[in-house]
Design a protein around this nucleic acid. Sequence first.
DNA 1: TTTATTTACGAAACCGTTTTCGCAAAAGAG
DNA 2: CTCTTTTGCGAAAACGGTTTCGTAAATAAA
Lengths: 333, 333
Amino acid sequence: MKELAVECNVSVATVSKVFMDSYEISKATKKKVLEAASRLNYTINPYASSLKNKRSKTIAVILPEVADNFFSLAINGIQSVAEKKGYHVLIYLSHENFIHEKSIVAECSNGRVDGVLISVASETISGDHIVKLQDENIPVVFFDREFENLSVAKVITNDYECGYLAAAHLIKNGCKNPVFLSISSCLGICKKRSEGFLAALKDKKTGHPETAVIECNGTKEEDNSQIKKLLQSKNRPDGIVTSVERLAISVYLVCHELNVSIPGALKMVAFSTLETAPILNPPLTTIVQPAFDIGKTATELLFKEIEKKECKIADQIIILPSSLFERKSSQIR
Amino acid sequence: MKELAVECNVSVATVSKVFMDSYEISKATKKKVLEAASRLNYTINPYASSLKNKRSKTIAVILPEVADNFFSLAINGIQSVAEKKGYHVLIYLSHENFIHEKSIVAECSNGRVDGVLISVASETISGDHIVKLQDENIPVVFFDREFENLSVAKVITNDYECGYLAAAHLIKNGCKNPVFLSISSCLGICKKRSEGFLAALKDKKTGHPETAVIECNGTKEEDNSQIKKLLQSKNRPDGIVTSVERLAISVYLVCHELNVSIPGALKMVAFSTLETAPILNPPLTTIVQPAFDIGKTATELLFKEIEKKECKIADQIIILPSSLFERKSSQIR
DNA sequence: TTTATTTACGAAACCGTTTTCGCAAAAGAG
DNA sequence: CTCTTTTGCGAAAACGGTTTCGTAAATAAA
């Protein structure tokens, strides 16, 4: 900037003001400086700028994993609005691990980011790290996976209703013993989905509510063998609802291996945004979350607070409904 | 930091040195300062730090899109090493658009990042923006999708061989007229895969090399209708190799719609890391890239230059082989 | 005991911006 | 033609660290 200043015979203050597009500077000098800048291809140093403004123009996105198609789509939504605002997006992966998530969140509190979007890990058992972040005046928005009972803005889907819907759908189609595969009993998303699921079981007086929610929170191999055992047990279910995408794939793989016919012996509904759902064998009935919109809306909400248009977003809850796509995996045949 | 200094009765210089773990500072004061820091929960301001060191501890990852499972896995690999090094990861999406890619790359040249990992957009028709980046002394590594004829480090897979392998596999299994669905004639990855594909056609004296490479570079809908037309034409292929994941899904969807039997009427091989390949209808023969390792290796290479362990990585090429998983979609029946 | 060296720390300059404040010159008002 | 206001710009002080260099005290060497 100093070089540019001497090149143009002005002060650094003037150059800075040109880049801020200040009204104090005449058209003529603005033009002169900008031309010289592009000639020397000079651009503002973002960190010096951040230091001065206390604005990083960066947000953090904390995800449990990125292999799930849901999160890929959500990232797209997030990116689309961040970019429009001229913001940069830092990605962090918690790998479903609470300790890891805490250390990531801690990294976000020293001014590195202006806001945080987070979908909590399945192993997260406390919201203290999030509260601490808010205490440091960093806006936070949960998207999809919230941690309950916190005064934090959230963009989620209608999990309870969808849990209910999934169970009701299976029961309507003849299931006598449907089960729900959860990944965590702490996770808001799983709790609500399973609660809705159980409510349907009770309403329809079907199945065994006491044992109908099964937790799969191991490695992929552990989950697979757990599912295998489940499908070979004497009280094996005739219907499964999976709470996340990867469990749906596991169930399919196990069924192919054990020759369990879907939907003949087992009907399935999956919470999933899998693009390949219609071309699976058999086509998979899915409850699909509006992943892109969840990401987009959460980011818009975050910016409301970052830009102080709306000072307190903390208690705002936005619910974007999911929808059931009925396919062969859950049909009567 | 100033507050912390007075709290501990030392100078800011000393505090700074404590955090740098300088040998100049005694065990005792280090302990004192660190304790006070955690009590006041103080952490170093990253941007002030970056400004002074000219190190951002951040790398950029530029991707065409994130919906493709390949990139999700690659991000995991990238993140795994960046995290170990204490680096942060900025994600940018080019949406396959060249102009967009250029503006993203430009953003990376003002010190915001210490290095760039890029998988180029399919519409990228020049490498000037990349060269410019290198001129600014920002290390760059291509991963998976390179732009050819540039002196830039790259981590890629054995595309030519795999293209050859795919065609040979189809021909061996009885295809008389296999085609290759490309997304761009400029993209190194597609060029090599299609060249390998064509070489096999010539070697085996099969098919119509002049018309065997078809470019699908439109929207999803445009690609779908192009594929539909292809499968309804009188010279319709009896084998398809798709260069990217999304085209494989498109072909399957179209085949389901048109009732084209796979592998009866059409055999398929896809370049893809789709986790659902074995449970598709029919199971899909894939050539799977070691996505995680490509990301990981590329990042390691990048850090070699960032940390100046190896001054010039520019011409290094690392090839990680892909492997063919034969499934029903390409079998003789 | 004197001199040389090591240890532990502080003062101050600097990294590249932004912003306040002051001040001329130009323009407008009376 | 004087007086006020506006316009256009520069000097300098931050922002929060890092680093060089200097120095006093403690230790070692002679």
